[in-house]
Design a binder for these strands. Sequence first.
DNA 1: TGACAATCGTTCGCTACCTTGCAAATATCG
DNA 2: CGATATTTGCAAGGTAGCGAACGATTGTCA
Lengths: 149, 149
Amino acid sequence: MPERSDAGHPVVAGWTKRCYFAGRALMDATLRPYDLGSTQWYVLWHLANVGPTVQRDLGRALELERATLSGIVATLVRKNLIEQTSGGDDQRQRLLTLTAAGEALWRDLPDLSFIHDAAFGGIDEADLATTVRVLRLATERLQNLLRKE
Amino acid sequence: MPERSDAGHPVVAGWTKRCYFAGRALMDATLRPYDLGSTQWYVLWHLANVGPTVQRDLGRALELERATLSGIVATLVRKNLIEQTSGGDDQRQRLLTLTAAGEALWRDLPDLSFIHDAAFGGIDEADLATTVRVLRLATERLQNLLRKE
DNA sequence: TGACAATCGTTCGCTACCTTGCAAATATCG
DNA sequence: CGATATTTGCAAGGTAGCGAACGATTGTCA
């Protein structure tokens, strides 16, 4: 967000945010006709490609807090796209499954891979690798600071 | 968010999101004792360093939608940190100014530059430049796609 | 001048993040 | 076995983002 170009650091943060939101906006715009949000799409993707999943595992896979996923699951259940059952050995956890309507919708959904291709296609592989390395290192450092308060 | 490492593209998107949220989380955690959100901090920063600003210009500088900024301004006014006046030649636009309490709080606030330093400090300048170039190019491509629908 | 268009801010409803606090179920260990 | 800790999910409340629709003001131009 900051436009200060003093040293070069804040600029990275700014473009990280802009890039994240631009991709998300394109995803949201593409999914809008289907009345789906981007994170809802990720949930459907996971259930369609991995199969029925316990809510806890889905949260870990998608890196979402329990409270966040809880709301998204509630929305998808309300739309009748997924089902949330609690008939396992562990009575705390809930199994998530695509409904027939959910599977039908998933088949109708357009392929979103064009977004990644549009964003990063044709860019030098070495540059992409550098970008990933920088972002991952920065993320790990920030998360370390977060753990130590 | 996606962990698929097929080609390399989706990985970039995943780390872009993680890095953005890690930085924001650290910022939020640092500001929590002061009951401030990260975007609220950016507004105070701008008013403290640039001076009183018309709301429209602030939105452009911070790249926020009118609706988003409207809510943030309302929050800061409610906290008595900024003032929103409408006494210009153009009766539509509102001038934002720090209140005395806002200036006092700003002086108490810790320096947040340690976040950028922690994230990107010590990384090769060329690698940072490459990262910025990749992210900016991807962002521009995505925004172009957004304009054409 | 008078109709129409553009701009500015607000409000509403939505998605998606978070923390905190709670209750229920399960695991662990004395 | 029983007390305690952990895990799982939910609800409430807050921040930050979006689009759409609406007054009010201002600009444009026939």
